[in-house]
């Protein structure tokens, strides 16, 4: 498999970024959900720190991913898709890129507006994006939760579509994102 994309498939770079970010986002969503529902405890605060560090790492990976997509060719959508399906898939992917950015960004703003320090995995402290503001922190908190629900809905559609292609339509759509031989 090539590092870069080709006309009919995703290269190793794009696949690695896709699955790293997928695993990261799944973990961040789970962590976020668990931590906000825990009573105050050392574990809760450790999960917060982990969640924020992971979220910032995802943000960096997503930016890298967007740049990588920009400097690579984007494989054509399989011809088995109708124009309407191609449009729908394209819109869904755009929504995913937007949410992959908005999800961590709203978290970063939320943390910044609370004027909490943010040390990524105990390795490097990154600066806050905004001045301290209770109102902004509240708005960002609502956005963060809203994006979570929207992202969850789009992900259900995204994963559902991938599985349908693989198990119902028996085409190459899922395989194109896996390091396996094509049929």
């Amino acid at each position: 498999m090539k590092i870069r994309n080709t006309r009919d498939g995703w290269g190793a770079g794009a696949q690695l970024l896709h699955w790293l970010i997928a695993a990261g986002i799944a973990t961040a969503m789970l962590l976020g959900w668990i931590m906000v529902n825990l009573p105050n405890s050392a574990t809760k605060f450790e999960l917060y720190a982990l969640h924020k560090s992971l979220g910032i790492t995802i943000l960096a990976l997503v930016l890298l991913r967007i740049v990588w997509r920009w400097i690579n060719m984007v494989p054509d959508m399989p011809g088995t898709l109708s124009p309407r399906e191609q449009k729908l898939a394209g819109a869904g992917h755009m929504a995913l890129y937007a949410l992959m950015l908005l999800m961590p960004l709203s978290g970063y703003v939320l943390n910044s507006a609370a004027n909490f320090p943010l040390n990524v995995f105990g390795l490097v402290q990154i600066p806050n994006l905004t001045p301290e503001s209770e109102t902004l922190a509240e708005v960002a908190s609502v956005m963060h939760l809203t994006f979570f629900w929207v992202l969850a809905a789009v992900l259900v559609a995204h994963i559902g579509a991938a599985l349908r292609h693989h198990f119902v339509l028996h085409d190459d759509v899922l395989r194109r994102m896996l390091p396996v031989r094509r049929r």
Binding site: Y48, A49, N115, F116, P117, N119, G122, Q125
Partner: peptide, 8 residues
């Protein structure tokens, strides 16, 4: 001081 490992 530090909060969740970050200085303030």
């Amino acid at each position: 001081a530090t909060q969740q490992g970050g200085r303030f």
